[in-house]
Every structure is written in C-alpha cells, then in structure tokens.
Amino acid sequence: MHHAFKIDKNEYDLGLSRSEDGYRLHFGDATVPVNLHVEDDGTAVLTVNGRSERVVIATRGDDVFIHLGGAAYQLRYEHPLDRLAAQAQGGAEDNVRAPMPGSLVAAHVKAGDSVVRGQALLVIESMKMETTIAAPRDGIVQAVQFTAGQTFDRDALLISLQAATPEAAGE
C-alpha cells in the first residue's frame, strides 16, 4: 500500500478506496468500510464497520489531529514519493532535531567542523533542565540552525550534518 501515517514512532501503511456509499480503509489484510461526515459546526461523524461516533478533526500541513473517544491523537502523513525517496537516501541521521521545546544554551561546534559519533554538539535548556545533544554518527557539520538564547519547538532542526559519502558510510 502506498501511503502511510506516523503515530509517535510507529509507521502504518494504508490505502483508501471509494466504495458504493463511502470509503474503505485498506490496512494489513483488513478491508474496513469507513466514512466521515463533517457537520456544519465543525464536528464530524466517523463511521467504522457500521458503528458511528462523534470526532473532532483539525489538520495543518501533513499533521492530522483527532479527538476520539475522549483522547487526542496526532498523525503525520507520509506521501509515498517522500517515503520511497527517503528510503533511497537513508537521511535519518543527517538531521539532529530538538527532543523537546527549549532554548539554545551553547553550541560547541560550527559549520565545517568534523565530529565523531557521540561527540557533544550543543547544550539546550528546557524547563530549567540542561541537556547535551550528541552527534548520531561521524560526519561534518553542515549548519547550526540557532544561536545562543534563541527558542525552538520540539523536532526543530538544530544541526544538519553533511550527507555521508558512500566510502564514509562504512557497513
């Protein structure tokens, strides 16, 4: 199946098709009749396998936020072309992202520096706790995105490493 959503760290492959009176969710071996009807007041009625319930949905870019059964969830859409292109490059370790919102205390490296795996790259502060961010692999720093004192959100790109060359990729 072509598309996927990510919930926390888990990726779920799925497909959506149109049926006679709604849609079908294709997930794993299951084909589930589903439908979603948005009312004027912004709430929606979600029907899965014939059972309906009220949900509230909001989207922003690739993120879908859903309130369902008294709890809120966030799903991030992954377009098939993005996923398949990313697989080809294996770029997960090129970008160092913020584990939580906060501000930059100090950067120990600058663009062009050569670093080894585990080396301290920078120190961030959040909720009066200081955390040191280390390099996920050997490489060369491409850019440091923030200066001391600046604030950022969770998942913000803090440091990018240059793409690993085939020789440097090792195994």
Binding site: H3, F5, L14, L16, S17, F27, V32, L75
Partner: peptide, 19 residues
C-alpha cells in the same frame, strides 16, 4: 487504530482525492 487511520486518511487530500 482503524478509527484513527480512517479519519486521518479521509481528511488528507492526497488520499481522499485519489479515492
């Protein structure tokens, strides 16, 4: 999980448009 994926898929234009 089925409910979330269904709601998200129908709310995501690339998926819904194709369907």
């Amino acid at each position: 999980l089925h409910k979330l994926l269904a709601a998200a898929a129908i709310s995501t234009r690339p998926m819904r448009d194709v369907a």
